[in-house]
């Protein structure tokens, strides 16, 4: 399989946030700013690459009946490793993302990729799938975080664009998360429809 093709697939065709609509909880919960969204995306991507590779490597050794519990153990292991490293070396980001770090375990994206891709492909292909999907997730979270931060506080990555007092606070709060994501998915749908209409 073409490696670039796999990455493109994860970024656009099967974008986990805008197309597959997976992993909504961290998408909504951690994107109050562009930086937080990116941090969460990268953390998930790291775990996804590792778990994809590990699962692909041991896929022949696991009896099919217990494969799901095995996948969960592998994913939970990498999540805990990440959790400990973040606590040690990035304590402030760890504090901001809070409970969403251990909850990467139940992010449907990871188990979904393990079942749909890693259990059927080679280690190297699985790694590229992890990169593609992880990158697609990171981009989506960063975009959502940027939009919310810009509308809510008037800055992007903490860099002020317009005065904070003109910002609409609701976009930083819970309702804004739902509404911004809804509008972004609609926009993505619209672009894809245009593509298919023309083709």
């Amino acid at each position: 399989m073409n490696k670039l093709r796999i990455i493109y697939n994860g970024l656009v065709t099967e974008n986990p946030t805008f197309v597959l609509l997976l992993g909504m909880c961290p998408t909504l919960g951690t994107t109050s700013s562009a930086f937080n969204g990116m941090g969460m995306g990268l953390a998930t991507m790291g775990v996804l690459i590792c778990s994809n590779m590990a699962i692909s490597a041991i896929k022949r050794l696991i009896p099919s009946k217990v494969r799901i519990p095995c996948y969960i153990v592998v994913i939970a292991t990498f999540v805990t490793v990440l959790q400990m490293f973040m606590q040690a070396y990035l304590p402030s980001l760890y504090a901001t993302l809070g409970i969403f770090i251990p909850l990467i375990v139940v992010n449907c994206i990871l188990l979904g990729r393990a079942e749909a891709f890693a259990s059927r492909h080679t280690v190297i292909d699985s790694m590229f799938d992890g990169i593609g999907i992880g990158f697609g997730f990171t981009i989506a979270l960063t975009m959502l975080g940027t939009v919310r931060e810009f509308l809510g506080t008037g800055s992007i990555f903490n860099y002020g664009i317009y005065p904070e007092t003109y910002g609409s606070l609701v976009f930083i709060l819970a309702p804004g998360a739902f509404i911004a994501l809804g509008l972004m998915i609609a926009l993505f749908n619209r672009i894809r429809q245009k593509h298919t209409d023309h083709a």
Binding site: P175, G182, A186
Partner: peptide, 16 residues
């Protein structure tokens, strides 16, 4: 383009 999940998300936002 708003059908399904997008409009549901916006409704969820209003509920929130």
């Amino acid at each position: 383009p708003m059908r399904g999940v997008p409009i549901a998300l916006i409704c969820a936002g209003l509920l929130a």
